[in-house]
Amino acid sequence: MDNPFKKILQDEKLPVYIKDRVIDNLNFIKLSLDVSELYTVKVPQALGSVIGESDKKKEQELIEKIINAKKNENNDE
């Protein structure tokens, strides 16, 4: 005997506006993820590299000062 449950067809149409709701939701989620990535990953990275560069500059200046000081000492002798 055939199972009538298998022949049940859901012929109701999905309203068109659901697609807009889905895509709007996804765009909002994407924006939220991008913004949170910006503040948690990108900004700290940028700050890290800026601070790192200024540290390198200072380090270089210090090394140069020491070298110059030693040169001056040698010249005085």
């Binding site: 859901q10 109701e12 149409k13 999905l14 659901i18 697609k19 889905v22 895509i23 996804l26 994407k30």
Partner: peptide, 19 residues
Amino acid sequence: GNTSLFGILYDRYAQKVYS
């Protein structure tokens, strides 16, 4: 991450999922 492309996938399966 393109949502317009996801729209194509939606068009293919939305009716089946709804059913």
